[in-house]
């Protein structure tokens, strides 16, 4: 099946006299199939927005190959721009124009039929507020306007960077339904978000990026399954024993995450190994449960961005794989 979006070995570096060279994208790969809602996840500063900007011709890549709707970009970007709707980062509009003026100007510039303006205003719920200036809008309303501007072209590929940012719970649910409807109608949606529960609910597939490289990709259930095996929750009879238990388990080679009243262990093959080890230290287990990982815990594990007690993590402190790791599923062109 021909991919709607293909990225292979994308590289982008920023050079600074003071800070030297920083690789924002370091051989990044991505593959999105038609009709899917694809989640694009990564910690702050991991290269998500740089990827989207590069894909849309706003940033010049240092290397790699990109294709959108079967066309090489940025060389052939003009041929596909009319079929790609996008919002990148926070919605930005001229504050003194009304929403209707804003969309109408874009429609004129993009040779879109004028009645489409009313359709998208209705779709994002701004019909009754469309004659008010954008500067009077809340963040959520600006977000709706941004989505409306991206939908104006009736795109085959919709790229949304944090579309739920600032939306109220009802708005988030409406956005979820909108994306599902668009997907059902054949539009491919690439969704970048930090609301991982939303991504897990909406998306068919995901790509996770960390420090400019892909750390996982594939259908959501496969990514979860690949990282759920061997995760257990352990409670002790005496909560005060948790630090000692954590130390003993870490020494034994388990990946331990400390929570206030329990421990989460990854990489466990047999539960008996845990109970035997702790009992040997005089620490008694009151509960040991196999846990299915959610997207958030997989994300935190893959990107190594889980908060550690007493430590403040810096933006660029996340996992960087040497290459696409064994935990990944799928592959380029698969």
């Amino acid at each position: 099946m021909t991919a709607v979006l293909e990225i292979e070995g994308l590289r982008k570096s920023y050079r600074s006299r003071r800070r030297g060279t920083r690789n924002a994208l370091d051989g990044f790969d991505m593959w999105v199939e038609p009709g899917q809602v694809h989640g694009f996840l990564g910690p702050n500063g991991s290269g998500k927005t740089t990827t989207l900007r590069t894909l849309l011709g706003l940033i010049r890549p240092d290397g790699g190959r990109m294709r959108l709707l079967g066309h090489e970009v940025p060389a052939d970007l003009s041929a596909v721009t009319g079929r790609v709707g996008a919002i990148v980062e926070s919605p930005q509009f001229f504050p003194h124009f009304t929403a209707r003026e804003t969309l109408s100007l874009l429609a004129t510039a993009g040779q879109v039929r004028s009645s489409r303006t009313d359709e998208v205003l209705e779709l994002v719920g701004l019909r009754d507020r469309s004659r008010e200036r954008v500067k009077t809008y809340s963040l959520g309303m600006k977000q709706r306007l941004a989505v409306a501007s991206a939908l104006l072209k009736e795109p085959r590929l919709l790229i949304l960077d944090e579309p739920a940012n600032g939306l109220d719970p009802g708005g988030i649910r409406e956005m979820r339904a909108l994306m599902r409807n668009l997907s059902d109608a054949g539009t491919t949606v690439l969704l970048s978000s930090h609301i991982l529960a939303e991504i897990q609910l909406i998306c068919d597939s995901v790509t996770i990026i960390s420090l400019g490289r892909r750390v996982a990709f594939g259908p959501v259930e496969k990514v979860l399954a690949a990282h759920s095996a061997g995760t257990v929750r352990v409670r002790l009879e005496v909560v005060a024993d948790l630090p000692a238990a954590s130390e003993a388990l870490t020494r034994a080679g388990f990946r331990v995450t400390r929570e206030p009243d329990h421990l989460m262990l990854a990489g466990v093959e047999k539960a008996a190994m845990v109970t035997r080890l702790l009992a040997g230290q005089g620490l008694y287990v009151s509960e040991l449960v196999w846990v299915d990982a959610d997207l958030e815990s997989v994300f935190l594990e893959l990107t190594a961005t889980a908060p550690a007690p007493g430590q403040s993590r810096q933006v660029d402190q996340s996992a960087k794989p040497a290459a696409v790791g064994p935990s990944s599923t799928g592959g380029w062109g698969s």
Binding site: G57, T81, Q92, F93, P95, A109, G110, K153
Partner: peptide
């Protein structure tokens, strides 16, 4: 200048990339 400052230019370039 205001188009650059408010992001209007970027929005326009998403529509017309030349």
């Amino acid at each position: 200048g205001a188009e650059w400052n408010t992001g209007g230019m970027m929005t326009m370039l998403l529509w017309r990339p030349k």
